[in-house]
């Protein structure tokens, strides 16, 4: 742990995300099996695994886009139950970036960014727009503020999507395969933004196949297969010295 410069020591006692013995089924199909996971404040976790292994489902459970049927999920001290107040509270504090961007096509880039602050955080429009412009500058796309999502390239759209989440001042950011739908030349511009974010100390859970990103940024790499966390380790040992057969097989296919 000592080598890792970013792990904050003081909050180690209180994990910001805590998943305890969580199970999820789709009908009869057991998608997530006995998941237990603790994420410390400022920690960056990369989740990888073959498709259908449940990795996307896991992070979608964390902001309750999917319901879990057994076990507990606690985000920043708020437990996710059927209580709609809790769900809204967690969603306001957890940002999410999707594979297909999911920008709102009927709103301009600026309006996409201010929607949450205005209606959820109840910020004045001017303040929300100022903040939005700051984040747009941060993802290097401020000059596009008045355009509509349909007029932007995939990479630009994904950067806008990241900025949209940041506008809510989230404590945690979830990334669901953020680069999978992008052309190769656009992947880097999105990864650069994510690396900047990591360096600023954002808590991040990233589902991705970008192993270069995992090696350079992650504090911890988790490998999931058939709905369970098979193995997790720091990136150095995870890639150089995988323990599990399934991990070895996966790494040999992907690297």
């Amino acid at each position: 742990m000592s080598e890792q410069s970013h792990s904050p020591q003081e909050s180690a006692e209180h994990p910001i995300i805590e998943v305890i013995d969580m199970h999820k089924w789709y009908g009869d199909f057991h998608v997530l099996k006995d998941i237990s996971l603790q994420v410390q404040n400022g920690e960056r976790i990369v989740i990888c695994g073959p498709s259908g292994s449940g990795k996307s489902t896991l992070i979608r459970c964390i902001n309750r886009l999917e319901e879990h049927q057994k076990g507990r999920i606690i985000v920043d001290g708020t437990e996710l139950t059927n209580d709609i107040k809790n769900i809204e509270k967690v969603r306001a504090e957890v940002g999410m970036v999707f594979q297909h961007f999911n920008l709102f096509p009927h709103l301009t880039i600026l309006e996409n960014l201010t929607l949450g602050p205005i209606w959820v955080r109840k910020t004045a429009k001017k303040d929300a727009e100022e903040a939005a412009m700051r984040y747009l500058e941060k993802v290097k796309i401020a000059e596009q503020a008045k355009k509509f999502p349909g007029q932007l390239s995939g990479g630009q759209q994904q950067r806008v999507a990241i900025a949209r989440s940041l506008c809510m001042n989230p404590k945690v950011m979830l990334f669901d395969e953020p680069t999978s739908a992008l052309d190769p030349e656009m992947i880097k511009e999105v990864l650069d933004v994510m690396i900047d974010l990591a360096e600023e100390g954002m808590t991040m859970l990233v589902v991705t196949h970008e192993m270069g990103f995992a090696k350079s940024v992650a504090d911890r790499v988790m490998f999931m297969d058939e709905g369970q966390i098979v193995e997790q380790n720091n990136p150095h040992d995870f890639f150089d010295n995988p323990q599990h057969e399934r991990t070895k097989l996966f790494l040999s296919q992907i690297l």
Binding site: M1, K33, G227, V230, E231, Q232
Partner: peptide, 20 residues
């Protein structure tokens, strides 16, 4: 040093009765 955690495979479980 390693922060290794591994888990043995878990069997398929039936979902809780109330959901099926």
């Amino acid at each position: 040093m390693s922060d290794l955690m591994t888990n043995p495979p878990i069997e398929q479980m039936k979902p809780p009765r109330r959901t099926v």
